[in-house]
Design a protein around this nucleic acid. Structure first.
Lengths: 204, 204
DNA sequence: TTGAATGGTAAACATTGTTCAATTATGCTT
DNA sequence: AAGCATAATTGAACAATGTTTACCATTCAA
């Protein structure tokens, strides 16, 4: 294996992903370009394209990193001792906080779209699955008696909604801030939805 | 006013917006380019840039058109005779259906982002406001006794959530379709959230 | 009819993603 | 140690993007 600098293939890839993450964090997704990344790591575009199929794969790796950070934050919120309902609220607020604190990275995750014919890699989908699985666990603890399908339905409904609040929160500030904070909306969503959902279950 | 062809400024703008809408509908937001639009309407890019500040303004106009269509569909759903709760469910499903039926246009609306320093024009924001106002009306009918702040809070919470379900529905199909349809999620969200919210109000 | 103003064009510029032939450095073999 | 094969790296090239602008053409008013 011949190499001119003291960087292995893996090192170059790591450096490129780091540079991409920095670019996203400072200039946003639109600020990322192959040449900028290459220049940042001291190589040329050509080298970049030998380590990544295309620019989307690179962005995908950077986003996967953010997803891992997010997941870690959610796991931490999960593992604090408290009642099931409070736990879910805490996780939801962590989700919200992450979006607010890392706005550019967050936007990059859900705003980036694969071009036609590009399939989402398994290692990326796995992170998303892990996220949903965490929610399902938390919801299950709230109502251990419900069957799996119901848990799944409620989890996905709830988390799509939580996600919706996060989205409308960043960028387009749809709420005049003096009226209601996104935390208030989040609280309203989770308590109302889950209270009714739990009650429905105890009826049957 | 000198003109080479028989098109007024307004006509050219209308043609350009139409062409942009077609491009979005067929190729998606990424398929839109100034040259494609110009060629479609039989003019050059230069002419396009005399009628629009930049490509984003053009896209904004196309998206505003979609928003108007969406609003019309929601208004129609609103004006059908039924109980308040059923009305809201119907509106939410109309929202969902619109996203499914006009996937590309829908994605173009919420995926398009203004570049730095670009402020959203009033005529665009007005359409979004109209949308939220419609929901507020529908929620008010469900609980006419609640004060305005509470109505606003519930409306925004609910609609952010509805929006979240729509988003996760298109593109990234996060639900294995054999488990639950998005309509099921929508039904679950609206009924549970609003039932608990109404009950909370009658307690006070 | 002539001149001024407007409509429209085409070419140019910078920047994007992506490819690829040429070059250079490395490791292995003899 | 020399040479060779292989891999790494470059830099130029291509097409397509948004955007600007100098120039040409047409029309209306005088």
């Amino acid at each position: 294996m011949a190499r001119r600098n003291d960087h292995t293939r893996e090192e170059i890839q790591g450096m490129a992903i780091d540079a991409t993450r920095t670019l996203i964090a400072t200039e946003g997704l639109e600020g990322v370009s192959a040449r900028k990344v290459a220049q940042q790591i001291g190589y040329t575009v050509g080298t970049l394209y030998q380590n990544f199929e295309n620019i989307h794969e690179l962005i995908l790796h950077a986003n996967a990193f953010s997803l891992t950070q997010l997941l870690a934050a959610l796991e931490q919120a999960y593992h604090q001792e408290s009642k099931p309902m409070q736990r879910i609220i805490r996780i939801a607020n962590t989700y919200l906080d992450f979006g607010q604190m890392h706005e550019k990275q967050w936007a990059a995750i859900f705003r980036h779209t694969l071009p036609q014919g590009f399939v989402m890699p398994d290692w990326y989908q796995a992170r998303i699955d892990a996220l949903f699985s965490l929610i399902e666990r938390a919801v299950w603890e709230l109502a251990p008696g419900r069957d799996k399908k119901q848990i799944q339905l409620a989890s996905r409904t709830l988390w799509s909604s939580v996600h919706g609040i996060c989205i409308l929160n960043i960028g387009n500030k749809l709420y005049s801030d003096n009226i209601a904070t996104p935390q208030t909306l989040m609280q309203s969503l989770v308590t109302h939805y889950l209270n009714a959902w739990v009650r429905e279950g105890s009826k049957a």
